[in-house]
Write a protein that binds this DNA or RNA. Structure first.
Lengths: 270, 270
DNA sequence: CCAAAAGTGTTCTTTATACACCCATGT
DNA sequence: ACATGGGTGTATAAAGAACACTTTTGG
């Protein structure tokens, strides 16, 4: 079986690595695998592995994640390709990096499938994985790039919902944004922006210097102009068992979102 | 020399392809190469080629562009990696795609270096290359992805300057934005936003119903509050030989821009 | 009733948009 | 002088930010 495949020119090996993000309700987490074999045996690394000749890199990333965690059909986006000359001691290995977003249901269903190269797996808090030096290969750089990419994308695309259950409260959504962007939002403003109501201006008459004049009074709410993008749908249900006003439960209307993007210069920016 | 390199498992070949954008002062252009060899001989394709084992994909993209056009040290960014199973008739070829931005000086210095695989080269207008079907491989998809990426990035990063000479007028800058985003901007507003002055609010007293009151009057320009980000530096020079008020010539202050990004939540969005 | 968090309203500030006006130049 | 496009100002609209008020639940 050795040396079966020959080429006229040397070829690099192709791998995929995947930065798996999960959300436990409070913090953003990253899944790491403890390597069971050399190189970097015993070190923590990203799930991933060599691309087979009959699959795309997308399929490879999905397959490797399934082999090592048991989850499939995961939301995944390509980050970029890493090709430093000495990034792998086994030789010339080029890796296409992905990030994956895991919703709570999948998050809880993950079972560590013991295998050749996976001795253990664990969810790490973001702050424990950023700028530390215990990772295999160039996986520290890949993770830092992934976080940057995730932060960029959540500011412009509705990917936060991939980290949440289909039904959620605005407060939960806000927590996802806050933990990814590492930034606090005003509760009321976040609520209004997400649900989609906004204030407006109103004209009224006023006596100025004993003369009636039209005065423009800015930014006073005008009820009839409140607008709702309809991106979040009120399910009519509320959370129960809390000792305060129960929060409404919403779900994300993806087709409504895509319709808005198509038919207008609608943006979804934070 | 044949069959010299053997591996235990089959390996895909790795290539880079580069979408080269240029600007002729009016329109955004894309550089295409007419293929001199099979496959797709005589078809137009992106400059690019096989990665050597001792170089990174970044270096490969730069080298291939230099071999085929003579220009080096070009601004280049990775787009993404394409790995469809049948994207290349020669077999399993995975390609890392880049886009490059060429400034007018380089634009005019490009010489077509006749080689094995480059029979001819030409600048195409964007609209002649989008959604047409005469390109080799999956290069149509790569170009469409590149344009989307370029549009995304110019909205948030100061990459427009890579398409221009070091010294430029605001009008020229606007033309670059307009042709990339395929959208018209208001001349005055674009100017103010770029140079960095903005209006503000002002308080003054007014007699209302025979009583003096403080009135907040919004959005009246308050000269002392005009702010200039300092990202564009007035060189003090102006264009000459035009039969109207000569435009000021600016240059981009990259270090000032990076300082702003570091020290504040400054954004550069269009 | 009270505490607590959800949801809404109010106020002020800043930015966006449309367009008008003045300015400097070559003919 | 005047046509042309550069540069600045003005008016209105919309969005953002800070925070106060109101509502609904469990104890």
């Amino acid at each position: 079986m050795k040396g079966k495949f020959t080429y006229d020119y040397p070829r690099a090996a192709l791998t995929t690595d995947c930065v798996v993000f999960g959300f436990d309700g409070e913090n953003l987490k990253i899944l790491l695998i403890k390597r069971g074999i050399e190189p970097y045996q015993g070190k923590w690394a990203l799930p991933g592995g060599f691309m087979r000749i009959e699959e795309t890199t997308d399929q490879c990333a999905q397959r490797e994640l399934k082999e090592e965690t048991g989850v499939s059909g995961v939301f995944m986006r390509q980050i970029q390709t890493f090709s430093s000359l000495n990034r792998d001691p086994r030789g010339r290995v080029v890796s296409v990096a992905y990030y994956a977003l895991i919703n709570p249901t999948l998050f809880n269903s993950i079972v560590i499938t013991a295998g050749d190269d996976a001795a253990d797996a664990r969810w790490f808090n973001l702050e424990d994985v950023v700028s530390v030096k215990f990772l295999a290969f160039d996986h520290q750089i890949i993770i830092d790039t992934a976080i940057e990419k995730l932060r960029q994308e959540i500011r412009h695309y509705p990917i936060a919902f991939e980290l949440m259950d289909e039904r959620f409260t605005i407060k939960q959504l806000q927590t996802v944004y806050e933990s990814i962007l590492d930034k606090r939002f005003d509760r009321g403003n976040f609520h209004k922006k997400m649900v989609g109501t906004s204030a407006n201006s109103i004209e009224f008459k006023m006596e100025v210097n004993n003369v009636m004049e039209d005065i423009l009074y800015y930014n006073r709410p005008r009820k009839e102009l409140k607008k709702n993008t309809g991106i979040l749908i009120d399910t009519g249900e509320v959370v129960s068992g809390v000792k305060h006003k129960p929060a409404k439960i919403y779900r994300f209307d993806r087709s409504r979102f895509e319709e808005l993007v198509r038919n207008s210069d609608f943006t979804f920016d934070f």
